[in-house]
């Protein structure tokens, strides 16, 4: 890690708190909240891809589960949305544990195709079970209710502002948990098995078990991100679980520097903002996005943050 845990968290907290000062309009709170949600999912991937070295091309599937848990559980089970978030986490964790056990034996591209298959299966169920999910057109999501609670307590905030702070706080917690993990026995073992599975096992690391733990943890991160996305938009479509969303979050992770939480957040910032900037040139959006992905990976193969850090280090 580049700097110590508390410095990173403090920087993150200050940025979250200070950014609204620069917002010209309420619309920017929405984008900020979206960045935080993406960053949360990406933080989970840092643990799985960056530390444990395991590829997932289907992680949006878990975001889909989290999102639809918040859409379906309040409506059909009468659960409070907050409980629905937890339900989504539990389902995602359970499913990750179930499928992770066999597929994490696979390596590299084979693991890629297996996770890809998982993501596609989730998308397909969400798309095809119209009676429940409304199919490809999506469905509306009940309100969280916290904002109303705040209003009753005399605090009036707009939806955008509320979700900005809510997602910012959740991201901070997520980053704190991840940074704790990094310098713990578990985090070190994950990084170790990434370096050499054989060597890791000869020092007593239960490689399959640790890979599974990383997979489950990262699934829960994605699930919470999906839940928050559904709740703040008030509407959700199966695209949240789709292949392109999976690729998007992996790209964010790698773009910023897949080994570090701060890098991941930086990646989320850039790739969330890019389409917003590019809407001006809607025609060229894909062209530019593709070019950015290629160029960054060629010139900064380890991601923005580590490459910048390395460059700073070289110049005394």
């Amino acid at each position: 890690m580049l700097t110590s845990k508390w410095v990173q968290l403090a920087v993150l907290a200050v940025l979250i708190a200070a950014l609204p000062l620069l917002f010209p309009s309420g619309y920017y709170y929405r984008i900020g909240a979206l960045i935080f949600v993406n960053a949360l999912a990406v933080t989970g991937l840092v643990i799985l891809v960056g530390w444990a070295g395991q590829i997932s091309l289907g992680h949006a599937g878990f975001a889909g589960i989290g999102a639809y848990a918040c859409a379906l559980a309040p409506e059909h089970l009468g659960l409070h949305p907050v409980v629905a978030i937890v339900l989504g986490m539990v389902i995602s964790a359970g499913l990750a544990a179930l499928i992770g056990k066999p597929i994490l034996r696979l390596k590299g591209y084979y693991l890629g195709v297996a996770t890809l298959g998982f993501g596609i299966l989730v998308t397909m169920v969400l798309t095809n079970e119209r009676i429940w999910t409304g199919g490809p057109d999506g469905m509306s999501v009940a309100k969280l209710g916290l904002r109303e609670l705040l209003r009753d307590m005399g605090v009036r905030v707009s939806g955008g502002v509320f979700w900005y702070w809510a997602c910012g706080i959740v991201l901070l917690i997520g980053a704190w948990l991840a940074l704790n993990l990094y310098n713990s026995a578990t985090g070190r073992a994950l990084r170790a098995l990434h370096g050499s599975e054989v060597a890791a096992s000869t020092i007593g690391i239960d490689v399959p078990r640790l890979k599974l733990q990383a997979f489950v943890i990262s699934a829960v991160y994605a699930s919470v991100a999906g839940s928050l996305l559904a709740l703040q938009n008030g509407f959700i479509t199966p695209d949240v679980a789709g292949f392109m969303h999976s690729i998007e979050i992996v790209t964010m992770a790698v773009l910023g520097g897949v080994g570090s939480v701060v890098g991941a957040i930086l990646g989320a910032v850039i790739l969330t903002l890019l389409p917003q900037v590019l809407t001006v040139f809607a025609e060229y959006e894909q062209l530019v996005l593709g070019a950015v992905m290629i160029l960054v990976m060629i010139f900064l193969p380890r991601g923005l943050l580590p490459s910048i850090a390395a460059r700073l280090k070289r110049k005394p």
């Binding site: 026995a185 170790a192 020092i203 943890i217």
Partner: peptide, 28 residues
């Protein structure tokens, strides 16, 4: 079979995995 991307201390610490490990919750 060194963990190349980890620090020297982290490499040595990894050797203590068995005595250091606890629950993931505790770690997180």
């Amino acid at each position: 079979q060194i963990f190349q991307d980890m620090s020297v201390l982290d490499n040595a610490l990894a050797g203590f995995h068995l005595s250091e490990r606890g629950s993931v919750w505790g770690d997180m």
